[in-house]
Write a protein that binds this DNA or RNA. Structure first.
Lengths: 123, 123
DNA sequence: CCGAATCCGCTGAGATACTG
DNA sequence: CAGTATCTCAGCGGATTCGG
């Protein structure tokens, strides 16, 4: 097949790709979800919530989300400094979908657990 | 901050992460979307639809989706061989999510286009 | 036609140290 | 507290070749 040089320019699947590139990162889903739960979160606090992220990746991901207008970054110029993150309006529009996705995940986790129980009973 | 050793074991954000790991690949969203549009797609056909994927990545991604029970792989043992892919029930449950996401993407693309028109008018 | 297998460059994730 | 800066290294993803 090799690579088809044509980019998915006007394909209807393209906006699917567009959206996934904006929320598909390793941490983006959890960040958006956490911001919806807590409304406002400070940088360090967010790091503690995600629990498996480095400052570098957290900064990088937050910058991307900010660039795409999904979150709002508010800096307080004081010592020690304080930076608060919150959902933008566009970002907030994604919450219903993430909620749906979370429920799907919960359901699937439950289903897998049952399957594992079955197999272990058979063993 | 470094890395917090604790994995997000029972955090409510964990199932968000779980779900994103299953559909967050570079091509997974588009594959699921295409399968919903066409119901049944053959391997080569899928490659032509995505238009920017190599056989290796396509195979790899399809295997992951199959392993997670999101798609069904049906092999016809004949010459030349034929393999058909379709959505599983669990995979189909994701379609509403992807549909909404696509609409969100369309809307956002439109919004960005308008913004660019404005700035070019100002120039 | 539908892949599997191999080689390989390069990015991007992670660890660590440092700064305003 | 909220980040940069730098380095290292695994693994993602691409090109190519081979097989049923």
């Amino acid at each position: 097949m090799a690579k088809m040089t044509r980019k998915c320019s006007d394909s209807p699947t393209c906006s699917v790709d567009y959206a996934f590139r904006r929320i598909g990162g390793k941490y983006k889903g959890r960040i958006l979800w956490s911001l919806n739960e807590h409304k406002i979160i400070r940088f360090g606090e967010l790091g503690r919530i995600l629990a498996d992220v480095t400052t570098k990746m957290l900064t990088q991901t937050l910058r991307e989300l900010e660039k795409d207008d999904l979150i709002i970054r508010k800096v307080y110029h004081q010592v020690p400094p304080m930076v608060e993150y919150s959902l933008s309006e566009t970002g907030f529009e994604l919450i219903p979908f993430i909620t749906y996705l979370k429920e799907w995940g919960d359901k699937k986790i439950e289903k897998e657990k049952n399957k594992n129980t079955e197999t272990s009973l058979l063993a």
